[in-house]
Design a protein around this nucleic acid. Structure first.
Lengths: 116, 116
DNA sequence: CGAAACGTGTAGTATGTTCTACACACTATG
DNA sequence: CATAGTGTGTAGAACATACTACACGTTTCG
């Protein structure tokens, strides 16, 4: 669960063209110790907490949900959505487990735009 | 988050007609210390871990997802479903956030049975 | 009435999570 | 070449999570 997150972040960060994305500067803007980010990127430490991951995502222009998933986590706001109607949403999630992306996207459109 | 779980479990357990549902016996079958269950039911301790909640749910015939929600948690298998396709499922969940239950149930049926 | 079962109080413990602080050796640059 | 910046190593620490072990007084019931 934690071996994918670090290297991915490193790769994304190093893909940036400017010197503004040195490990130390990114760590500084994210608000963590450089040594901590270093260990995380090399997978020596497990991924940081959600808030820190959100800031890393913003900093690197990555999708927070994807980054959180790589860290084995799920965004707190999604958890809240589930907890508000657990039986219903659990049913929905288990229904989409093996559903092709196309079909889910179609359902999203229907839900949003109203299908009647 | 934790003040609802305990009392709800207590109420459900005490609603059982037989002596097989004494705190001690339930704790025994669930595999935890009676004093621990006692404290949980009175909200003196936070809810137990997911596995324990699952066993309590089974023992009392309750919906595990609902019990987990009362404990401020979400089932690990649902988290896995999200983590497998984070962007897509996150979009789906945020789309259903304020959608009436009826409409979600309709979408579930469509997803399951195929709407074309 | 005595033993078994009851619920609860007290006192811990093991493990995981999420970080900080600082020193070090190397590299790039003005 | 001095200095600023780089990534990393070591050593922890604060806090949360998820429990156990056992003793105590009370109630139930054969």
């Amino acid at each position: 669960m934690s071996q994918a997150f670090g290297p991915y972040v490193r790769e994304r960060r190093e893909a940036k063209p400017t010197k503004e994305f040195s490990l130390r500067r990114v760590a500084g803007r994210v608000g963590i110790e450089p040594s901590y980010l270093s260990k995380i990127e090399r997978g020596e430490q497990p991924p940081p907490g959600e808030e820190t991951i959100q800031r890393i995502a913003k900093e690197l222009g990555e999708d927070p949900d994807v980054l959180l998933a790589l860290a084995g986590k799920v965004s707190a706001d999604l958890l809240k959505i589930i907890r508000e109607r657990p039986a219903l949403i659990a049913e929905l999630l288990r229904a989409v487990r093996r559903t092709p992306a196309k079909r889910i996207a179609h359902a999203v459109r229907e839900i949003r735009d109203g299908e009647w």
